[in-house]
Amino acid sequence: MRNEYIPRPAIIKSIKIETPDTKTYRVIFKDKIFARHFNYKPGQFIQVSILGIGECPISIASSPTQGRFLEFTVRAAGRLTRLIHQLNAGDRIYIRGPYGNPFPLNRAKNKDLYFIAGGIGLPPLRGVIVSALKKRANFGKIRILYGAKTPDELCFRDELDSWNRAPDTEVLLTVDKPDKNWKGNVGVVTTLWNKTNMNNSSGIAFVCGPPIMFKFVVDKLLASGFKDKNIYLTLERYMKCGIGKCGHCNIGEKFVCTDGPVFDYHSIKELPVKERVIF
């Protein structure tokens, strides 16, 4: 029996500032043997901790195709994440995992892929996007629809352009409140439906964003012909253990940490309405 609660030390190799309150960390496990056996898939999450402060679940933002490091994006929201933001390259951080189920990219072979993200919802999708682009020929067209409150709050801005340049791949951006330099679309992410053909009865959609966004996006996808089993959402809940024991992330009889965090819309519809998975 493995002791799941012991985190492993990792060293921060680099830190990238994404937005005023969001940073992406690239880390490598100190123990090389452990690092070699740390196999993950995009969509899974890790428990990140600073000893003496606490632990929190964070989505993995990298793809294993990138190399033997892990990347994750952290928004300074609470006590622990604010302290993570004070760490520097070379500092030590503790990690256990990976936990949860991934986005089923293997189900999407030869299909058109649609990524729809809001704000800090892009990092959990970023690993899948990178994996899909690495094997570009395996998929049909790729559309990435990404919205944020302001242009400053778009994550991975340096990568959006290169994704857009991949064959038959389109990145569509929108913001709620433009600044002087913004030339793109203004409005919530569903307003991007006017900018590209979204009708697709066999496409696979991967969605991540604030709960309020889910309902509008899912309605739009269904209206565009997407099957409910082809719409994947990744849910967020307060979590402590990550292994289906502590109870904090339960929704109905499901645990977001072990049954999710990636759920297809078909199974989300079965969850109790009062749990407000989708507004």
Binding site: S49, I53, E55, K240, C241, K245
Partner: peptide
């Protein structure tokens, strides 16, 4: 059996 996890230092 629900539990919380916390650190003390």
């Amino acid at each position: 059996s629900c539990f919380n996890i916390f650190d003390e230092k």
